[in-house]
């Protein structure tokens, strides 16, 4: 259908059908991109599940690594991961949240603040293996902590610190100004306002950020390899100065072996790792939803 009584229509060559066709063709390509992403994800998960499930058992979780695939398990790596994550959280949370509070509540607008902000943005994209080299030199070497859990935890804390700082800043920034004004109007000092109003109100957002940071740390293999090297451990660490291994390294170890059985063990280890990650993310989503409900009311 055309509208012909209008101004100067002959001056245009609108080719609407062709333009629609081009649009539709590109639409198919965009849709295809989404499908490629989703199919990639599904294929990866299916591959891991089909290879790993036959090897997954309670015995797998409670056994030490072994040269015999039938007897091998992930227990020491699982315990190493729990130790490492616990210590990492102890270092990361107070310092990361502290830095975020400083930048949001205290920092004057000057060159130092700008430098800190630029620096944090840069640190967030330094390759993780570089953090491993930092830890190897400073914590393992100069501070003489050896290839210990403590050295590993300090290294991972530095690695995920930018994530905690950025998430905590977002959570603090999202608080309505009225919260703070109400407290200041009652005569509270800046630190009182921070301690008793800002931090409690931003806590769910901060916790979400901490969980996301921990789920990044839990999957890291490269920096931990630089710290701990590839060790074969048949004991559970009992102190922060013990040697350790973690799940991603154990998985890497099994992947590197030529025998197919070890590939199955690797897949089973991946399933355990993914289940832990999934639970952490579910917890983060749960916290976020609760938080949203609370602010809406």
């Amino acid at each position: 259908m055309t509208f012909n009584t209008l101004n100067y229509s002959k001056m245009y060559n609108r080719r609407i059908a062709m333009r629609k066709g081009i649009g539709d063709a590109f639409y198919s390509l965009f849709l295809l991109s989404v499908l490629v992403g989703i199919i990639g994800l599904i294929t990866l998960l299916v591959q891991v599940l089909t290879e790993g499930i036959p090897w997954l058992s309670w015995r797998f979780i409670t056994s030490f690594p072994s040269r015999h695939p039938q007897e091998a398990g992930i227990f020491s790596a699982l315990m190493g991961t729990i130790w490492l994550m616990g210590l990492t959280a102890v270092f990361t949370v107070p310092i990361g949240v502290g830095a975020a509070i400083y930048l949001e509540e205290y920092a004057p607008k000057n060159w130092l603040t700008r430098l800190i902000e630029l620096n944090i943005a840069n640190l967030a994209s330094v390759p993780s293996i570089i953090y491993g080299l930092l830890g190897l030199t400073i914590f393992v070497g100069w501070m003489a902590l050896g290839r210990s859990i403590l050295a590993g935890a300090l290294t991972l804390s530095l690695l995920v610190m930018p994530i905690v700082i950025l998430a905590s800043r977002e959570a603090i920034k999202a608080l309505p100004l009225t919260y703070r004004e109400a407290a200041y109007a009652l005569g509270a000092t800046r630190w009182q306002v921070t301690k008793s109003v800002v931090v409690p109100a931003a806590l769910p957002g901060i916790l979400t950020g901490v969980i996301l940071a921990m789920s990044r740390a839990i999957g890291e293999a490269a920096p931990v390899i630089a710290i701990s090297a590839l060790v074969y451990l048949t004991f559970i660490p009992t102190s922060p100065l013990d040697r350790f291994t973690v799940m991603p390294i154990q998985i890497f170890n099994w992947i590197s072996r030529p025998q197919n059985e070890f590939r199955g063990l690797a897949a089973a280890g991946i399933i355990v790792l993914l289940i832990i990650l999934l639970s952490m993310n579910a917890l983060a989503i749960f916290l976020r939803n609760r938080y949203q409900v609370r602010t809406e009311v």
Binding site: M1, T2, F3, L6, Y12, R14, I16, R19, K20
Partner: peptide
């Protein structure tokens, strides 16, 4: 009308 393209209408 079903045969009309909104894109064309917007040029008029």
């Amino acid at each position: 009308n079903s045969g009309v393209d909104p894109t064309e209408i917007r040029t008029h």
